[in-house]
């Protein structure tokens, strides 16, 4: 549309001028000023249109249309420019916020699990999933529960298997978690399926493989028809769950006064798998735990009839489990509580 009129020319001139200015604007504030200058209530376009009243009536629609077109044009251009400038400003801001992503991340505080307690909890979890109940017993025990009720009468040579720390003639720090067996059997009737985790103590010279204080987990199952095969299956399940199914274990006959038959479970050396190497002291297999069928005398002491009930029991040290899993050769690292060691168990 071409409109030949001085007012139209003025409007077009304003357009040209405004478009130039918009293109030149470099900030959002500049744009806002231009909007006010050209489109505001006292802006140039508005001012120009105020002269429209003086125009002949037939020209008014044309000029009006032109003015509206210019107004829309300017608004569109302002908006476009505003968007471009906004994007530019954002781009510049983001640029200034650049960081060196190769700097290390924040070292959030994380808890450090003690490997022995962790091993204990894992084993407890494995047995809980197999339906075992968890019970506890006192760390200081009567001699009667620690020994006599487990078929180890006073002066029995088997007492030499446990060097004990006594608090009085008849009271000692439990040398194993087994007294809890006697306690639970005394207070309940079969079926029983329990594990007993806890600290135990033996009067041993402390070295790489012995400590006075250690953790033990006792297991006891008593019911009708419990067999040595059940014991084997259970301990296989434990080892498969803890070490993974590839690790070999073996059962061999042993002796404990409170079980008969008794079995020791050995695990193949983590390094050589039983072929004998330096790291297992050329033994190939390492003792993991002791176990067996509950001795008929122990059942009788609890008032259970060995003709009716049978059971198995086992006792294991989480320390042995942990050293076998991590191929650690010195138990002392567990009681040093050195963060440089423990940090690996975050």
């Amino acid at each position: 549309m071409t409109v030949e009129s001085p007012l139209a020319d003025r409007i077009e001139a304003t357009r040209t001028q405004a478009l130039d200015a918009i293109a030149q604007a470099s900030t959002l504030d500049d744009l806002e000023a231009l909007r006010i200058r050209f489109l505001g209530r006292k802006g140039e376009l508005t001012t120009a249109l105020s002269a429209m009243g003086k125009l002949p009536a037939e020209e008014r629609p044309r000029i009006g249309a032109l003015a509206n077109e210019v107004k829309r044009d300017l608004e569109r251009r302002l908006e476009e420019r505003e968007q471009a400038l906004g994007e530019e400003a954002l781009r510049r801001r983001l640029e200034t916020e650049r960081v060196d992503v190769t700097l290390p991340g924040t070292d959030w505080p994380r808890g450090i699990r003690h490997p022995l307690i962790q091993a204990l909890r894992e084993v407890v979890d494995i047995f809980r999933r197999m339906g075992y109940e968890v019970i506890e017993g006192p760390e200081v025990e009567w001699d009667e529960y620690n020994f006599t009720k487990l078929n180890i009468p006073p002066h029995h040579p088997a007492r030499d298997m446990w060097e004990s720390l006594y608090l009085s003639e008849d009271m000692l720090l439990r040398t194993h978690t087994s007294p809890a067996q006697a306690r639970i059997m005394e207070s309940r009737q079969p079926p029983l399926r329990v594990i007993v985790p806890g600290r135990c103590y033996r009067n041993e010279a402390e070295d790489a493989t012995h400590g006075i204080q250690f953790l033990q987990i006792e297991g006891l199952v008593v019911d009708r028809g419990i067999t040595l095969a059940d014991l084997k299956g259970t301990l296989h399940a434990l080892c498969a769950a803890y070490f993974g199914p590839q690790r070999k274990i073996r059962f061999r006959p042993s002796y404990f006064p409170f079980t008969e038959p008794s079995a020791e479970v050995d695990v193949a050396c983590a390094v050589c798998g039983g072929a004998r190497c330096r790291s297992c002291g050329f033994k190939g297999w390492l003792e993991l735990l002791g176990s067996g069928m509950v001795h008929p005398n122990v059942l009788r002491f609890a008032g259970y009839d060995p003709e009716v009930y049978s059971g198995f029991a086992f006792g294991m040290g989480p320390d042995r489990l942990a050293i076998q899993r991590y191929a650690i050769d010195d138990l002392r690292v567990f009681r040093e509580n050195d963060l440089r060691f423990l940090e690996q168990f975050r």
Binding site: V221, L228, K232, F251, P253, E260, H295
Partner: peptide, 25 residues
Amino acid sequence: ADIAEEVARSRGYDQIPETLPAQDI
């Protein structure tokens, strides 16, 4: 029980099968 151990150890504990106690608890 002692006789059972004599028999089992002579046969070898590796000849004992592996089962799990029946789940009735």
